[in-house]
Design a binder for these strands. Structure first.
Lengths: 282, 282
DNA sequence: CACTATAAATAAGTTTTACTCAGCTATAAA
DNA sequence: TTTATAGCTGAGTAAAACTTATTTATAGTG
């Protein structure tokens, strides 16, 4: 007994819409074809699926049962196809608020001009949806993650608003913003090493922490103290002359941005986006 | 973009089996056909679904995604079809242990001879599986259930083993088994009315209850006292001369056997079984 | 009460598709 | 090198899916 999938689909539509005609419209065929399909299905299953009433069809118990299962089944299948189709020109990047706000979102317009066909959207939700086209850019420990996945090693330094004209005065305590990650597994910002390299004592600073670098950077832009953070994040502000590092020496950190299982993203669209990201963070 | 369901099915099989050839075998077509289908699918979705390696195919991430969804979707659909096909010659009756053991199961062989194509099985589980082909036969209150659903009104009487040769001697207390339902909503067996009609006093009896009539009936068959129970259940034993009612007067009860929403069972096979049941319990 | 409109069924013919066959490629194993 | 295997390609074909025209049954309408 070989049942036809097209007949099943016709039945599913007709059952859902309650009409052969409506089903025919949905499937872009004639009502006659739907009628044929369903008659065929009924004879093969050896059971009635619809009661034929005047200008109206109603499901038999068997029809009801098959309809429910067919509808859920086809829904699953076509939703996946829909995803695949969209994946052809859509990429969603999920990443930290800071990287999104300070680097990616400001660069989006330029990307959009360069690749107008590409739909890129950004998500900073923690609950990473395992959508097909979602590209996660995470902050991680460069000693632990796969080297090939890393797109940017993080270097740290202290920055303050250029408006201050000079290095923060060390004769009175300067407020220094830095980060304390919610995720304990992440290496802390290398503040101690940086102080040592630059021959500074932590007594010079009143350290305040946020769980996201973004907040400290915003404080500093508002001319409130200094921030010890990843150079990657403030690069545009350095370039624009809004922030400066006052010739202190920057330090390496164990932190890096990486894309888990980067090599898995092999469709052309993903490659384009990854390449763009790598270039952006160079 | 119109994607073919057959192509999808071919892809699903190939993905699940990891081979075009195996998929071809499963679908009873040639490997070439599978290859065509998948090439077609890939071009329509504009994405690769398989990596072609030597004598081996592996899924791309897109293929993996589609495969998982397609497999679940088709599984749902074909499981429903399987059910429907089976429903064509299979009926499961769920009912009380007593009715099953005393009336239905003993009659099964005869039914099987009369209708050899029919697969009937009996379930006494309380958790009624809402399978498509399950026919519930319940004990209910005839004043509450739909009249059209009733297949047998219950009449009650006292029965004892014929081996006793005479009515239970009333000069010493006779053990009388009767039922006390677990389900409080069910009317109790009409013992009081029966005693009244037959001018008997309950002091003549030592009443013991089981939650299923079957147990009391079995006691009596073992020549241990008398049972006050539904005539329907003991009819075969009366006919066989194993039990007798000693010319007491039977009484009506509110109890009845019924099939909820009987009219919904409209397939020929269900009708056959219902008719057989009604005849059996006449 | 005829008349129109509607939803589906039926019959017959047409188009499309899914499929097969023959031949080809690449490669692993003998 | 030879053989066997898994899949690909192209062309032709059988089967299916679909259409048009016609019919049936009936609800709604003037």
């Amino acid at each position: 007994m070989h049942i036809s999938l097209q007949a099943l689909k016709a039945f599913e539509s007709a059952a859902r819409l309650g009409s052969f005609k409506a089903a025919a419209t949905e499937l872009a065929i004639t009502p006659t074809a739907v009628s044929h399909h369903i008659a065929n299905l009924e004879s093969r299953l050896n059971t009635d699926l619809f009661h034929r009433e005047v200008r109206k069809i109603t499901l038999t118990p068997s029809g009801e049962y098959l309809s429910q299962n067919a509808t859920s089944g086809f829904k699953l299948i076509f939703a996946a196809i829909e995803q695949l189709s969209q994946a052809n020109n859509q990429v969603r990047i999920t990443t930290t608020s800071s990287l999104a706000a300070l680097r990616i979102i400001p660069a989006l317009e330029e990307l959009n001009n360069a690749k107008p066909h590409l739909r890129l959207d950004i998500s900073t939700s923690e609950t990473l949806d395992k959508q097909l086209h979602t590209l996660p850019v995470r902050l991680g420990n460069s000693e632990e993650v796969n080297k090939a996945d890393i797109i940017k090693y993080e270097r740290y330094d202290m920055f303050a608003a250029n408006a201050q004209q000079s290095a923060p005065r060390l004769d009175k305590q300067v407020t220094l913003y830095t980060s304390q990650w919610k995720n304990n597994a992440l290496p802390a910002p290398p503040l101690t090493q940086w102080l040592k390299i630059n021959n500074l004592s932590d007594s010079c600073f009143k350290v305040k922490t946020f769980d996201q670098e973004l907040f400290g950077i915003n404080q500093v832009l508002a001319n409130k103290g200094a921030v010890f953070c990843s150079k990657t994040l403030v690069q545009p502000y350095l370039d624009a002359g809004l922030l400066t590092s006052f010739n202190n020496q920057e330090v390496e950190s164990k932190l890096c941005y990486y894309i888990p299982e980067k090599s898995r993203f092999e469709t052309s669209i993903h490659k384009v986006v990854i390449e763009w990201l790598e270039q952006l963070l160079t």
